[in-house]
Structures are given as structure tokens and as C-alpha cells.
């Protein structure tokens, strides 16, 4: 969100975040669309060596800004320094990727027939919430829906964490330990070092 500057189409991508969660609420197959938010930052970082996605296109970050700054839902207090420390950022990234791997494994179990589809989402990797209305079968195999439930859980959990830190600290505190941000910054640092040699 920019102050007194010309607005671009990508300044409104916070709407996409709301639309994404709304679509996934009614049909879990839409959760797959969240992969765009995973793949695009990586493409920008690997191919372009920049964080243009974080800087301009992150709908989630923009949503925190709209809610925190424009709608005054943030205390706008300084977050503790450890939140943006390297060990916490990379620790959280490791944890996040482990949980992503677990979700992929769960999808594989459904794919292989070892487990049946669970029509529920897991919040904060702990609390199971029934989500039966979001899937009534389709022409697609069950593992596709299982991935949807798992991925939607991940997206919703990270957004809820972001909303909590937004309310407690500054609007975009989530950005200081966002796993995608950490990963893409790491890639950019490696690329910048190589480029300087």
C-alpha cells in the first residue's frame, strides 16, 4: 500500500486473499489456487533474483496492511527483536516445511489407498475443524481433495498467525518471519553473492 502514489492493479491483491478463503470455504478444490502464492515468489527469486512478489504482489501482506493500518486493527507496537532474528526465521521456515511435507505425505496415503479422505481442516497444526460442506465428491480422485484440505489448513493457519501478530504488533509483522519471505530472501542472497564474485 502506497502513500499518495499512483495505484497499480497489484495494489488490490488483498481482495484475492479474501476471495481465496471464501472459495475454499465452499469448495475445497479451490485451495489448489493457493499454490500460485507459493510458486510465484520462487520464480521471482530464482529467475529474477528479487523479492518483487513480497514487495508488490503479496495479497496476504496487503490484507494485513488494509486491516491493520486502514481499519486500525493493529496496535502498531514494535515486535520483539527475536521475531525477526535469523534463528527464529529459519527455525520457523524449517517447521513450516516439515509440516508441508507431512501434508504431502498425508496426500500420498490417500493416493495409495492406505487412508481415506478426511473432510476436515487442521488449524495451528493441532485443532481439527470439520469442513464437510466443502467437498461432496467430484470426477477427481480423493487425493486431490485431501491436498486441498491440507493446503487450505496451511494457508488459513498462517493467515491467522499473521492476523494475531498484526493485532499485537505492527501491521505486517508476519512479513518479518514469513517462510516464503525467508526462503526467497535466502535465494536472493545466494544469487547476489554469486553475482558479486
Amino acid at each position: 500500500m502506497k502513500t499518495g502514489k499512483k495505484k497499480h492493479w497489484y495494489d488490490y491483491l488483498w481482495i484475492w486473499t479474501i476471495v481465496y478463503f471464501a472459495l475454499g470455504f465452499f469448495n475445497i478444490l479451490f485451495a489448489w489456487l493457493g499454490l500460485i502464492d507459493f510458486v510465484l515468489p520462487l520464480i521471482f527469486a530464482i529467475a529474477g533474483g528479487n523479492k518483487w512478489f513480497c514487495n508488490h504482489m503479496c495479497g496476504r501482506g496487503q490484507l494485513f496492511w488494509v486491516l491493520g493500518r486502514n481499519l486500525k486493527c493493529s496496535r502498531r507496537k514494535k515486535a520483539p527483536a527475536w521475531i525477526s532474528s535469523k534463528w527464529f526465521r529459519y527455525g520457523f521456515l524449517t517447521f513450516f516445511m516439515t509440516m508441508f511435507g507431512t501434508m504431502i505425505f498425508q496426500t500420498y496415503l490417500v493416493f495409495s489407498g492406505a487412508e481415506t479422505l478426511r473432510k476436515a481442516i487442521k488449524l495451528f497444526w493441532t485443532f481439527k475443524v470439520p469442513w464437510k460442506w466443502a467437498y461432496n465428491g467430484s470426477i477427481l480422485p480423493d487425493w486431490v481433495a485431501q491436498f486441498g484440505f491440507g493446503f487450505y489448513s496451511l494457508m488459513l493457519t498462517s493467515t491467522l498467525i499473521g492476523l494475531i501478530v498484526m493485532a499485537l504488533y505492527k501491521e505486517r509483522t508476519w512479513c518479518s518471519f514469513c517462510p516464503m519471505g525467508t526462503m526467497t530472501q535466502g535465494i536472493c542472497q545466494i544469487k547476489a553473492k554469486k553475482g558479486n564474485k
Binding site: M1, T3, K51, C54, R89, E171, C175, S176
Partner: peptide, 24 residues
Amino acid sequence: NRCVACGVCAGQCPREAISIYRGC
């Protein structure tokens, strides 16, 4: 070494005095 290169500062700067160096 504390900067996370999120670009929030650059987006807010009224003078466009801030840029993100190579995503770092």
C-alpha cells in the same frame, strides 16, 4: 543484517528514497 527485504518501507516512503537491493 536485520532487514527482511519485505519492501514495506519502500512502499511507504513519500520520496521514493528506498529501494530493495537484489531482494536482500
